[in-house]
Computed example of a mutant assay.
Amino acid sequence: MRRDFQPAVYIMASERNGTLYVGVTSWLPKRAWEHRESMIGGFTKRYDCKLLVWFELHATMEYAIAREKQIKGGSRKKKLALIEAANPQWRDLFEEICLP
Protein backbone atom coordinates (compact mmCIF):
# COMPACT_ATOMS: atom_id res chain seq x y z
CA MET A 1 0.00 0.00 0.00
CA ARG A 2 1.24 3.50 -0.78
CA ARG A 3 2.27 5.47 2.28
CA ASP A 4 -0.07 8.29 1.28
CA PHE A 5 -3.14 6.09 0.90
CA GLN A 6 -5.31 5.38 3.94
CA PRO A 7 -9.07 5.54 3.38
CA ALA A 8 -10.87 7.48 6.08
CA VAL A 9 -14.22 9.01 6.95
CA TYR A 10 -14.03 12.25 8.92
CA ILE A 11 -16.06 15.04 10.46
CA MET A 12 -14.98 18.69 10.32
CA ALA A 13 -16.70 21.26 12.57
CA SER A 14 -16.87 25.03 12.74
CA GLU A 15 -16.84 24.90 16.56
CA ARG A 16 -18.17 22.75 19.38
CA ASN A 17 -21.77 21.85 18.48
CA GLY A 18 -21.42 24.00 15.37
CA THR A 19 -21.80 23.24 11.69
CA LEU A 20 -20.65 19.72 10.75
CA TYR A 21 -19.25 18.33 7.52
CA VAL A 22 -18.86 14.60 6.86
CA GLY A 23 -16.35 13.57 4.22
CA VAL A 24 -14.32 10.68 2.86
CA THR A 25 -10.74 10.73 1.62
CA SER A 26 -7.87 8.49 0.65
CA TRP A 27 -5.36 10.54 2.74
CA LEU A 28 -6.71 12.35 5.80
CA PRO A 29 -3.72 14.55 6.74
CA LYS A 30 -3.71 16.24 3.31
CA ARG A 31 -7.49 16.60 3.15
CA ALA A 32 -7.81 18.02 6.67
CA TRP A 33 -5.03 20.52 5.91
CA GLU A 34 -6.87 21.60 2.75
CA HIS A 35 -10.01 22.24 4.82
CA ARG A 36 -8.04 24.15 7.50
CA GLU A 37 -6.41 26.37 4.90
CA SER A 38 -9.74 27.00 3.07
CA MET A 39 -8.26 25.51 -0.10
CA ILE A 40 -11.47 23.64 -0.88
CA GLY A 41 -14.36 25.80 -1.99
CA GLY A 42 -17.91 25.01 -1.07
CA PHE A 43 -19.51 23.95 2.18
CA THR A 44 -16.51 23.75 4.53
CA LYS A 45 -15.11 27.08 3.35
CA ARG A 46 -18.51 28.82 3.46
CA TYR A 47 -19.27 27.56 7.00
CA ASP A 48 -15.68 27.75 8.31
CA CYS A 49 -15.44 24.03 9.16
CA LYS A 50 -11.75 23.84 10.05
CA LEU A 51 -11.66 21.56 13.10
CA LEU A 52 -11.10 17.85 12.56
CA VAL A 53 -13.20 16.46 15.42
CA TRP A 54 -13.71 12.82 14.45
CA PHE A 55 -12.33 10.25 12.01
CA GLU A 56 -12.38 6.55 11.28
CA LEU A 57 -9.79 4.68 9.19
CA HIS A 58 -10.84 1.92 6.78
CA ALA A 59 -9.14 -0.89 4.88
CA THR A 60 -10.62 0.09 1.51
CA MET A 61 -12.24 3.10 -0.14
CA GLU A 62 -15.35 1.01 -0.71
CA TYR A 63 -15.77 0.52 3.06
CA ALA A 64 -15.01 4.19 3.72
CA ILE A 65 -17.55 5.39 1.15
CA ALA A 66 -20.23 3.05 2.51
CA ARG A 67 -19.58 4.33 6.05
CA GLU A 68 -19.65 7.97 4.88
CA LYS A 69 -23.06 7.38 3.29
CA GLN A 70 -24.30 5.73 6.49
CA ILE A 71 -23.16 8.66 8.63
CA LYS A 72 -24.47 11.30 6.22
CA GLY A 73 -27.82 9.52 6.17
CA GLY A 74 -28.05 9.62 9.96
CA SER A 75 -29.35 12.41 12.12
CA ARG A 76 -27.33 15.28 13.51
CA LYS A 77 -27.88 13.73 16.94
CA LYS A 78 -26.09 10.55 15.78
CA LYS A 79 -23.19 12.57 14.36
CA LEU A 80 -22.85 14.47 17.64
CA ALA A 81 -22.89 11.16 19.54
CA LEU A 82 -20.01 9.83 17.39
CA ILE A 83 -17.96 12.93 18.16
CA GLU A 84 -18.81 13.01 21.86
CA ALA A 85 -17.96 9.32 22.33
CA ALA A 86 -14.49 9.62 20.80
CA ASN A 87 -13.65 13.29 21.45
CA PRO A 88 -15.78 14.75 24.28
CA GLN A 89 -13.66 17.93 24.46
CA TRP A 90 -14.05 18.50 20.70
CA ARG A 91 -10.27 18.87 20.36
CA ASP A 92 -8.88 19.54 16.90
CA LEU A 93 -7.34 16.17 16.01
CA PHE A 94 -5.28 17.53 13.11
CA GLU A 95 -1.98 17.57 15.02
CA GLU A 96 -2.52 13.96 16.15
CA ILE A 97 -2.86 12.65 12.61
CA CYS A 98 0.09 14.64 11.29
CA LEU A 99 2.66 13.54 13.86
CA PRO A 100 4.94 10.69 12.74
Rank of each mutant, 00 (worst) to 15 (best):
E34P: 03
A85Y: 07
E84P: 04
A85V: 07
I97S: 08
A66M: 08
L99T: 15
A13I: 07
S26P: 01
P7T: 03
R3I: 09
R16V: 05
I83L: 10
P88L: 07
F55I: 02
L52K: 03
G23P: 09
Y21G: 00
L20G: 02
K78T: 02
L20D: 01
S14N: 11
R16E: 13
A32W: 12
R46A: 12
I83M: 09
I71S: 00
T25S: 12
P100W: 11
A59N: 15
T44D: 00
R67G: 04
N17K: 15
K30N: 06
T25G: 07
R31G: 04
P29S: 12
I40A: 05
W33G: 09
Q89N: 15
R31P: 06
P88Q: 08
G23H: 02
L51Q: 13
A81S: 09
Q6P: 03
A13V: 07
R2N: 11
M39P: 01
L93C: 11
L52N: 05
Q6C: 14
N17E: 14
R2H: 09
M1H: 09
Y10V: 00
V22N: 00
K50E: 06
E96G: 14
Q6E: 10
E84T: 08
Q70F: 06
V24I: 01
I11V: 04
A64S: 06
A86N: 05
I97M: 10
A81I: 07
L28F: 07
E34G: 08
R36Q: 14
R36S: 13
K45N: 07
C49Y: 02
I83H: 13
E84R: 07
K45G: 03
K30F: 13
S14Y: 10
L51N: 10
R91M: 11
R31I: 01
E37Q: 14
Y21M: 01
H58P: 13
S75M: 04
H35S: 10
E34V: 01
